Amino acid sequence: MATIKEFQVTFDCAEPERVARFWCEVLGYVLPEPPAGFATWEDYNATLPPEDRGAWAAAEDPAGKGPRLYFQRVPEGKAVKNRVHLDVRAGTGLVGEERLAVLQAERERLEALGAVCVQVLVADGVNESCIPMLDVEGNEFCLD
């Protein structure tokens, strides 16, 4: 039996396109092309029943290496801490003050996009610095 090497990460949310655009900015991803025969996603959505318009969105790695992110509208709001979250690897290979400076700069960029910093965890001799954050709908992720 072959092992699966590709996967998609799915987010439940209230505003799929808004959350997809946020993650496109965070990760350098892009929205996929609209379906054949449509110039824009707005044109496509206009053909759907009102309750289905904007029900989902996706974000894709333009290099084709990272997982596809899928955002689906759900009626209920976020109620508890995520059981799974993304670690945005902004400080890979860096340590100490250099790592913290890079993470802080990325934190400021993401806050300008609507993210919220939960706290800054500074290196303690065992763990390196990281910054837990919330996306535009309150989903947890870490700058790592």
Rank of each mutant, 00 (worst) to 15 (best):
R73T: 03
K78F: 05
Y29H: 02
E25R: 14
K78E: 00
L48V: 06
A58H: 11
F71E: 09
G96S: 02
W23F: 01
C117F: 02
E98K: 11
L86W: 11
E108F: 00
G54P: 04
G37M: 02
C117Q: 15
A39R: 02
Y29Q: 02
G93K: 01
V30T: 12
C117S: 14
E76P: 00
V118W: 00
T40N: 03
R53L: 01
K78W: 03
T92P: 04
L121N: 15
R83M: 13
N45P: 06
R83G: 14
L100H: 04
W56S: 13
L48F: 03
Q119F: 09
E111D: 05
P50T: 11
K81T: 08
A39K: 05
C117W: 02
P50S: 03
R107K: 12
A115S: 13
Y70R: 01
R89S: 07
P67C: 03
G28Y: 04
V74Y: 00
G114E: 10
A115P: 05
L121C: 14
E25M: 11
C117T: 15
E111N: 12
A46S: 15
V74K: 08
L31I: 15
E108R: 00
E51C: 01
V19L: 15
P62R: 14
E111W: 02
G96P: 03
A79V: 00
L48R: 14
A46P: 01
A55Y: 05
C24A: 06
A90C: 12
W23Y: 07
L103N: 07
E98L: 12
E97C: 04
K78Q: 08
K78V: 02
E25G: 10
G28P: 06
L100V: 13
V120D: 05
A55S: 15
A105F: 00
L100M: 12
V74M: 10
G66E: 14
N82K: 09
K81R: 15
D124W: 07
T47K: 10
L69E: 05
C117L: 11
E42L: 06
L121H: 10
L113G: 12
G93Q: 05
Q119R: 13
A46C: 11
A57V: 11
G66R: 11
E17C: 09
P49D: 13
D52T: 06
D52F: 09
P75D: 10
Q104A: 04
K81F: 05
V30H: 13
A36T: 06
F38Y: 15
R99Q: 04
K81E: 05
P75I: 08
V88Y: 13
R73N: 12
A79P: 00
E42Y: 00
C24F: 09
G64F: 00
